[in-house]
Design a binder for these strands. Structure first.
Length: 669
RNA sequence: GGGGACGUAGUUCAGUUGGUUAGAACGCUGCCCUGUCACGGCAGAGGUCGCGAGUUCGAGUCUCGUCGUCCCCGCCA
């Protein structure tokens, strides 16, 4: 028996031909002597009809069929009298001659339908059922096509895909590593790569000139909707590049990826095609922070933050106990999406929410609020022409209106922080107004969610202040290049030094980041000194790489794009879990595979690994409390053991892990 | 590590100031039905109210703890 057609492929033009389809029973409609089965495969659904009079055997078998049974149907493609416009194969049906039930199935925990109602937890646990739905198919196919197009594009531009090790060494920089114990070298560990950073730079030293790789990376950090512990990057590095060269490589890749995505979007209703043009917009980090309060601004909303320092008198600032910088924001009522949706009460609520949100989500703000005993974020606002006052000053409101072109009815916001200005938190109030801007965007036509706004962010600061270490630390990895004219400030004013690092942002989502690297040894040494790294620390952290750098390193630079995020956005999804076949939960658990899991004792023994174990036991007879401590090999197979109380010599049953060297200690009661 | 939301039938949910036998829809099982297409009709099964303590005459409901899922901060390119 051979499959001749995919279910979704049958058309009126095939009428009269015989066909054999194979797939899952999507739905059964039993009318007694007439029975319909909708049969589904990857391509779609076709209706199969069973008639008791003409094909009693097939009909009898169809009566046994249930949801998700796997079947093969031999029959004749027949034009229907009344077509079903809802499905692609609706003009025809398969008149069954034979039905083969290839496998039966338990009733699925949720129906296999386009629009899923089951919780994400259930979907992840039964991922193989969730994957039978058309949308996961589409997302995975889109992902495949994007990655394929990227490989083709990179190849055409002369890049060579080189694989780098998955079992490599831990570097204490950056994220926490996933460690892999070595059986051969007791007590030593490989690390899974956080990224192939060092290797790709070494490939440049190796003269590869243009490298790329679509590669899994691993970071043992907490998860988010756009973050999984393992994720896929398009990793790129090239020799002798100008920043523009790297930008145009990625622009080329992304424009073609968007074109691929458009082929998928056309089949969905209400999806506007993605329109993008290269080159993408560019903005420095400083400009982004000043105008949007974010290093990944969503440019689908045009309105930006207005600097107000020079418009406000020092006296007024002193009176209110606020500090520079002061920022403003202009909301134009002319572009209000729903008329009258922004009442004074609504604005008040927005302002209050923003103040609360800043307090909650920006640690520097909440710390300041705590020490002040009141919200650190100060926000004032007015309606232009309505007893217009900002900071109790009609003149200031008018000046603001003049500067922003605000007209009657428009809303002006002013924000500042209470307390002293702190140069370490230069953009703190801007970041608060990023929250305001995000809250207002849903009210205005100036925000167009259908647009696709790519943005390059450049000149990131080289250092950032670490509150935990109370010092300036490298904002990216310590091989990030330094803007030439800022080199002299490396020792005197490190916070002003700009790097040759850049990010690619799409619609407020960071897609990737990279940099032109340092290739000169003298600059590298100065940077290490500025970071306060000793020779010994450097050796320990970067040993072999420092050696490599001394053998004629060419100028080089690169970037890495997060492909899960790229696919997520192009698929129109809100979580990368929707574009990953087997995703993990926010606790980094695979609910289907049930990983991570305990392992056999023998495996741990081979690796010389023991896991500390501890339990407090209270004696049932005399009430004495004992701490049992030891090492277990795994969480499986706990067993009841007899424990003799040292005080009253009574035996009690205690659940003890299979372990060694159990130590007993009496606790004070 | 911190904050928030949620957890009741296979699934999605409702469940009043704490009060008799915990409900609905879909799904499932059986019977009837020859043109359905989310088929329809009749009948039926299905519950450790996540788990554990506590308050109470009485807890799905209140309190504490714990586990799980999701979102956010920290963390993370």
């Amino acid at each position: 028996m051979k499959r001749t057609h995919y279910c979704g492929a049958l058309r009126a033009s095939d009428a009269g031909r015989d066909a054999t389809v194979m797939g899952w029973v999507h739905r059964r409609r039993d009318l007694g002597n007439l029975l319909f089965l909708d049969v589904r495969d990857r391509s779609g659904i076709v209706q199969v009809v069973f008639n008791k009079e003409t094909q009693p055997e097939a009909h009898a078998k169809a009566e046994q069929a249930r949801s998700e049974f796997v079947v093969a149907v031999e029959g004749r493609i027949t034009k229907r009298e009344r077509a079903n416009a809802e499905i692609a194969t609706g003009e025809v049906e398969l008149v069954a001659m034979k039905l083969h039930i290839l496998n039966n199935a338990k009733t699925p925990p949720f129906p296999i339908e386009q629009e899923i109602s089951a919780s994400e937890e259930t979907r992840l646990r039964y991922r193989y059922l969730d994957l039978r739905r058309p949308k996961p198919h589409r997302n995975l196919a889109l992902r495949h096509k994007i990655l394929l197009e990227m490989r083709k594009t990179m190849d055409e531009m002369g890049f060579i895909e080189v694989e780098t090790p998955m079992l490599t060494r831990s570097t204490p920089e950056g994220a926490r590593d996933y460690l892999v114990p070595s059986r051969v070298h007791h007590g030593k560990f490989y690390a899974l790569p956080q990224s192939p950073q060092i290797f790709k730079q070494i490939l440049m030293i190796g003269g590869l000139d243009r490298y790329f790789q679509i590669v899994k990376c691993f970071r043992d950090e907490d998860l988010r909707a756009d973050r999984q512990p393992e994720f896929t990057q398009l990793d790129v590095e090239m020799s002798f590049p100008r920043q523009e060269d790297i930008f145009s490589v990625i622009e080329n890749v992304m424009v073609r990826a968007c074109a691929v995505a458009n082929e998928f979007r056309d089949i969905r209703e209400g999806d506007a095609p993605i329109v993008v043009g290269a080159p993408f917009q560019k903005m420095t980090y400083e400009e982004a922070m000043c105008r949007y309060g974010s290093d990944k601004p969503d440019l689908r909303y045009k309105a930006s933050i207005i600097p107000l320092d020079e418009m406000v008198s020092a006296g007024l600032i002193a009176t209110l106990g606020i500090s520079c910088p002061l920022v403003g924001f202009h909301f134009s009522q002319q572009n209000l999406r729903i008329p009258n949706s922004l009442s004074k009460t609504a604005i008040k609520n927005i302002v209050q929410t923003v103040v609360e949100q800043a307090d909650k989500n920006i640690p520097e703000v909440s710390a300041r609020s705590r020490s002040l005993g009141k919200p650190a974020l100060f926000v004032d606002w007015c309606l232009v022409g309505d007893q217009q006052q900002i900071l109790r000053s009609p003149a200031l409101a008018e000046a603001m209106a003049n500067k922003t072109g605000a007209t009657k009815g428009d809303i002006l916001f002013l924000g500042a922080l209470r307390g002293e200005n702190d140069p370490k938190h230069k953009y703190l109030v801007h970041r608060c107004f990023d929250l305001l801007r995000n809250r207002l965007k849903d009210y205005t036509n100036e925000y167009d969610p259908k647009r696709w706004e790519f943005l390059w962010l450049t000149n990131f600061p080289l250092f950032e202040w670490s509150e935990t270490d109370k010092t300036w630390v490298s904002a990216q990895h310590p091989f990030t290049g330094i803007v030439d004219e800022d080199l002299e400030k490396l020792e005197s004013a490190p916070w002003e030094v700009r790097s040759k690092g850049y990010d690619l942002v799409l619609n407020g989502v960071e897609l990737g980041s990279g940099s032109i690297r340092i290739h000169r040894q003298d600059v590298q040494e100065r940077l290490f000194k500025a970071l306060g790294l000793t020779e010994e620390q450097l050796r320990r952290r970067f040993g072999f790489f420092l050696d490599a750098l001394t053998y004629g390193t060419p100028p080089h630079g690169g970037i890495a794009l997060g492909l899960d995020r790229v696919t997520m956005l192009l698929a129109g999804e809100k979580s990368i879990r929707e574009v990953i076949a087997f995703a993990k939960t926010t606790a980094a658990v695979d609910l289907m595979a049930e990983s991570p899991s305990a392992v056999d004792q023998i495996q741990l023994e081979e690796l010389n690994i023991a896991i500390p174990w501890e339990r407090v036991v209270t004696c049932g007879t005399c009430g004495a409390r004992w701490k049992l401590a030891g090492y277990k090999f795994s969480e499986v197979g706990g067993a009841s053991q007899r424990f003799r109380c040292g005080s009253c010599q009574t035996d009690t049953q205690v659940l003890v892990e299979p372990g060694v060297n159990i130590a007993v200690e009496k606790l004070d009661s």
